[in-house]
Amino acid sequence: MTTSWTIYESPLGPLTVIAGASGMSRIRFPGSDERLDEAGRRPAAFAVATEQLDEYFAGDRQAFELDLDLSAGTAFQRKVWVQLRVIPYGTTVSYGDLARAIGRPDRLRAVAATVGRTPVPIVIPCHRVIGADGSLTGYGGGLHRKQALLELEARGAAGQAPEPAWAFRQLTLS
């Protein structure tokens, strides 16, 4: 399989965006120790994805329209990831809500683990899943990034402009 990738400079820090032949397969937050072959770096191949990410961070996009390659996940994981994409922009659900939505309230821990393994965060909005008591729980990019994404969406859902990029970056670094 041919893997291509690029670095997208987001308000959350540099994101490594990776795709295979059938679509985007991963987004990695800063700090990932995964080594990628420099020959696979193809920024032009990600023009649509980076444009949609720009629109999202500017508050102009609420859902992504990108081809995704989720073939590395099990059938159960793919079911959870599909359900994550149904969570409306600017809202949150609990892990229990998510487990019930896929018809598996008995698999709460497996649902939570799957959310934590979402290969394409932001595009698949795993940041919209919170604890039953409303608390923020684990996020691969760190809770500060999860909070920043939720605040970005809350402002957008309320019809407010997003924070300036410098303020957003400061929020994520604090």
Rank of each mutant, 00 (worst) to 15 (best):
G31C: 09
G31F: 12
G31W: 13
G31I: 11
D33V: 15
E34L: 15
R35G: 02
L36T: 04
A39L: 14
A39N: 14
G40E: 09
R41S: 01
P43F: 13
A44R: 15
F46A: 05
F46R: 11
F46N: 04
F46G: 02
A47P: 01
V48N: 05
T50K: 12
E51M: 05
L53F: 03
L53Y: 02
F57Q: 07
D60G: 06
R61M: 11
A63N: 07
A63L: 06
E65L: 14
E65D: 15
E65K: 14
D67F: 11
D67M: 13
D67H: 14
D69W: 10
L70T: 07
A72C: 06
T74K: 01
T74I: 06
F76H: 02
R78F: 09
R78H: 02
R78I: 09
R78D: 01
K79N: 05
V80Q: 03
V80C: 01
W81E: 04
W81N: 06
V82I: 10
L84S: 09
L84N: 08
L84M: 10
R85D: 06
R85F: 02
V86F: 03
I87L: 10
Y89L: 10
Y89N: 06
G90E: 07
V93Y: 01
Y95H: 14
G96S: 15
L98S: 01
L98H: 02
A99L: 07
A99V: 09
A101I: 12
I102V: 15
R104C: 08
P105W: 11
P105N: 04
L108H: 13
A110N: 09
V111H: 09
V111A: 10
V111G: 09
V111E: 10
A112W: 14
A113C: 06
A113P: 00
T114E: 01
G116E: 06
R117C: 03
V120A: 00
V120P: 12
P121E: 01
P121D: 01
I122L: 08
I122H: 04
I122D: 01
I122N: 00
C126G: 15
R128W: 08
I130S: 00
G131R: 09
G131W: 00
G131C: 00
A132T: 00
D133P: 04
D133R: 11
G134A: 07
T137W: 11
Y139W: 13
G140V: 06
G142T: 10
G142S: 08
L143S: 03
R145C: 03
Q147M: 13
A148E: 09
L150A: 01
E151S: 00
E151L: 14
E151G: 00
L152F: 04
A154P: 03
R155K: 12
G156Q: 11
A157Y: 02
A158P: 13
A158I: 13
G159C: 07
Q160V: 00
Q160K: 08
